[in-house]
Amino acid sequence: MSSKTIFSGFGGQGVLMMGYSLAHSAMSTGYHTTYLPSYGAEMRGGTANCTIAIAEEEIASPISSEPDYLVVMNTPSLYSFQNKLTSGGLMFLNASIIDARPSRQDIEVYAVPCGEIAEGLGDIRAANIVMMGAFLRKTALVTLDTYLKSLETIMGSKKRKAMETNTKALAAGYELLKTS
């Protein structure tokens, strides 16, 4: 097992959090993992992305020129990264704010209305976790249980309310693709 994922969007969407929590749960599962965020000047423009590598053996390069999975949370990210995705790769797209769709035919695209779903749960900020639910449903990189435990570790015990919302959001995203 060896995979690379790019999460992308703009600052405030919790893009780095998605990557960090995935890497954390991969570590808890016992995999090798690397997390590489965008940094410096490119952060100042408000866009954010990170690359997560997960593998059973030592990871050579944490960079990915051809990711297996791509999560795009806003339209500029779709255009920036769609052609990087490997042929046959999976794209997860934030359908709540992205109207465009990739022109490529050789990839699988999952349009996830993660914004609306999160709003339905009472907290738009959980949109990224809804997306993670959908992402984990299709990629099965880590189990939902492991992921939730990582999320809890990262957020600390104080944010119990947020954790409740996150648990619901994760399940909602997971169920969405299961039933479609």
């Binding site: 090798h32 993992t33 590489l36 940094y39 410096g40 944490p62 960079i63």
Partner: peptide, 10 residues
């Protein structure tokens, strides 16, 4: 280098 500084690993 910048990559080593920025990247996370266990």
């Amino acid at each position: 280098d910048g990559m080593m500084g920025q990247m996370m690993e266990p």
